[in-house]
C-alpha cells in the first residue's frame, strides 16, 4: 500500500532574494509533526531547505513557523490534521528572514534587554552592573596548578561554609504571582500573531513585556521603578498594545502577554 502523502507548500527565500513558493508531496504518518515533514523534504527532495530545530519536544523554542497562516511550533504541531487542506509553511511574520524559514531573533533579544530582564535587588544597580556577587565565583587558591585543598572543615561539620548567603524566602503564593510569565520559551509566535507588530516593528512586543512583568511581580525584585521609565513613559513599550489578544491565543506555553500589557496600562492610568 502506498504511504499516504500530504501536499506541503513552503515559502522560500535566499538571503536578499525574493520569496518564492515550492510544493512537495510528503509522506506522513498519524504521529508525524510538521517538523518531521520538513525533515523528510530536506532528506529526500532538497537538502538546501533551511529551518531551525533542536529539542523536538516543544521546550527550546527554535522551530516557530507559520502553518497555514498561524504561528506554530513545528515540532509539536501534528501534520495529520491538515490532510484535507494541505500545509502552507512560511517564515514567522513580522521578523527579518535570514533564509527560507529562518528568521532573526536578534531584534527580540535587544528589546528584551531594554526591559532590564534580571533581578534588581535592594542595592539596585541598574543596567550594566555585572553579575550579582557570588561566594562561589572565587575558587580555591590561585597560582598553584593543583586542585585546591579539600574543604574538610565544612564537610566534617556538615554545615554550609561560613559566610555563605542564605536563600531569600519566597512563599508558594509569591511564586505563583509571577510563575505563569516564566514559562516563555522565546519562540516569538506572539510577535508573529500581533497585529501591532506588523504596523509598528519598534513595538517592544508581547514576550518582552511579559518577561518585564515576570520580574516586576517577583517578590525578590525591587526594580519596578527602574523599569518604569522605559515601560511606561516611552512610545514603543506598553502603549502601542490595542488589547487584541492574539499573542495570548498564539502562545504555545500558556503565557498570557496580553494580561501583562493590560495590567501595565491599567496601573499606569491609575
Amino acid at each position: 500500500m502506498p504511504e499516504p502523502t500530504i501536499e506541503v507548500t513552503v515559502t522560500r527565500q535566499e538571503p536578499g532574494g525574493p520569496p518564492r513558493e515550492e510544493t512537495f508531496e510528503v509522506p506522513y504518518g498519524e504521529r508525524s509533526s510538521v517538523l518531521d515533514l520538513l525533515d523528510a523534504i530536506k532528506e529526500r527532495e532538497d537538502p538546501s531547505l533551511t529551518y531551525r530545530w533542536s529539542c523536538r519536544s516543544g521546550v527550546c523554542g527554535s522551530c516557530g513557523v507559520s502553518v497555514n497562516g498561524s504561528p506554530r511550533l513545528a515540532c509539536e504541531t501534528g501534520a495529520a490534521g491538515y490532510r484535507a487542506s494541505g500545509i502552507r509553511l512560511a517564515p514567522l511574520a513580522g521578523v527579518a528572514v535570514e533564509r527560507d524559514l529562518v528568521t532573526s531573533p536578534a531584534d527580540f533579544v535587544s528589546k528584551l534587554r531594554s526591559v532590564l530582564p534580571w533581578l534588581i535587588d535592594d542595592a539596585g544597580a541598574g543596567a550594566g552592573a555585572g553579575e550579582v556577587a557570588a561566594g562561589s565565583s572565587a575558587p580555591a587558591p590561585l597560582g598553584s596548578m593543583e586542585p585546591g585543598p579539600p574543604a574538610s572543615d565544612s564537610l566534617a561539620s556538615g554545615t554550609l561554609a561560613s559566610g555563605q548567603a542564605a536563600p531569600t524566602t519566597q512563599s508558594p503564593a509569591e511564586l505563583s504571582a509571577f510563575a505563569d510569565f516564566t514559562a516563555c520559551v522565546n519562540c516569538l509566535l506572539c510577535y508573529a500573531a500581533c497585529p501591532v507588530v506588523k504596523e509598528m516593528p519598534e513595538f517592544v512586543g508581547p514576550a518582552a513585556i511579559a518577561i518585564a512583568r515576570r520580574w516586576d511581580l517577583d517578590s525578590r525584585d525591587h526594580g519596578a521603578q527602574q523599569r518604569a521609565p522605559f515601560l511606561l513613559e516611552t512610545e514603543f513599550a506598553i502603549w502601542p498594545c490595542i488589547q487584541d489578544g492574539s499573542c495570548t491565543i498564539a502562545c504555545p506555553k500558556g503565557v498570557d502577554p496580553a494580561r501583562a500589557l493590560r495590567d501595565y496600562q491599567r496601573e499606569a492610568m491609575g
Partner: peptide
C-alpha cells in the same frame, strides 16, 4: 568533594539571580 561543597552556594547564587525555585510552605 569540591562540587558537593560548592553546590549549595551555586544554587543560592542562582536564587539571587531570580531562579524561580519551587518552595516549601515556609518559603525555602
Amino acid at each position: 568533594e569540591e562540587v558537593v561543597r560548592r553546590a549549595p552556594e551555586e544554587l543560592i547564587h542562582l536564587e539571587r539571580l531570580g531562579m524561580p525555585w519551587s518552595r516549601t510552605p515556609d518559603g525555602l
